[in-house]
Design a protein around this nucleic acid. Structure first.
Lengths: 154, 154
DNA sequence: GACAATTGAGTTGCACACAACTAAAATGGG
DNA sequence: CCCATTTTAGTTGTGTGCAACTCAATTGTC
């Protein structure tokens, strides 16, 4: 038995598909909840990161959200265009760009405050289940990323 | 107490972000594993669906994968261009299009057979944990979709 | 100090997702 | 039978994700 049983294989596929479906379902709910704020879910994540700790470099945001500049640069431009953040080159290191909340961007936090309770109700989990699920997902991501890096380093 | 405690709210955000991260991590592993087959993860899902039950309508594939024609139509065109499926209008109902595996498309299943065991090793879960996780994710998706539909019907 | 290597941000190209729309074909109520 | 409604795919436009690339600024090394 070097490989797993067929039933197990199907379960893996189902688990992966379940993860894919659940993620899209949640994003679709966020789309509805974030529509009044004119934010997409990734934009909301960036705003969350900035509300927690303002004036971060693009690099730091990327590290916090696991997103690279290819995704963040255009997204941040849209947030700037929407008047929620400013982008300015650092004087001490001309390579880096600091992202800072505008007054409007900081104020938007007030409108966002009702969202988590919506999500909480939508999930339909008790706190213990939610915690266990989150821990499992964190372990999964770490394990999967490690495995990918292992087989990728050629 | 009409709303949840602050700690709980943060947990929701973390859970959502965990789900988002885990989904992207898994897709990124699939990207590596599927590269030899020249398939993306959504394309792989379509192929899985067809390997399980060939000659399905676009509508049926959409129902199986929760994807609409806006996503499926171009994806299926790419699979057709790659010589993996054929697309033909039904004679009895000219609206619908039947997707059928080509010989190459059916044969690709052989190359895909090693993928689930890779995934199984990458997940690092025992079967029981995987089952519990899958069930939680299924419940989550259903609950979240229900909640979204509830607040959407205006 | 010169210069190769690295770093940080941005650009380009491709493939999803999904809303909103179009168009053709089938259906159903009168 | 007629025509409004519904169904099925497809198209268009926007916003991610991400690989691969560019470019300027910085760093490390000699």
């Amino acid at each position: 038995m070097t490989s797993q049983a067929p039933g197990s294989l199907r379960l893996n596929d189902q688990l992966c598909f379940g993860l894919y479906s659940a993620s899209r379902a949640l994003t679709s709910l966020y789309r509805v909840l974030l529509e009044p704020l004119d934010l997409t879910y990734p934009q909301y994540l960036v705003m969350l990161a900035l509300w927690e700790h303002d004036a971060r470099q693009v690099k730091e945001l990327g590290a916090a959200l696991n997103l690279d500049s290819g995704t963040l640069s255009p997204l941040l431009k849209r947030l700037e265009k929407a008047g929620l953040v400013t982008r300015e080159r650092q004087a001490d290191d001309e390579r880096s760009v600091r992202i800072t909340l505008t007054e409007r961007g900081a104020a938007l936090r007030g409108q966002a405050e009702q969202i988590p309770s919506h999500i909480g109700r939508a999930l339909g989990f008790d706190a213990a289940t939610a915690t266990r699920l989150r821990e499992s997902l964190d372990r999964l991501a770490e394990s999967v990323n490690g495995y990918r890096d292992d087989i990728t380093e050629s």
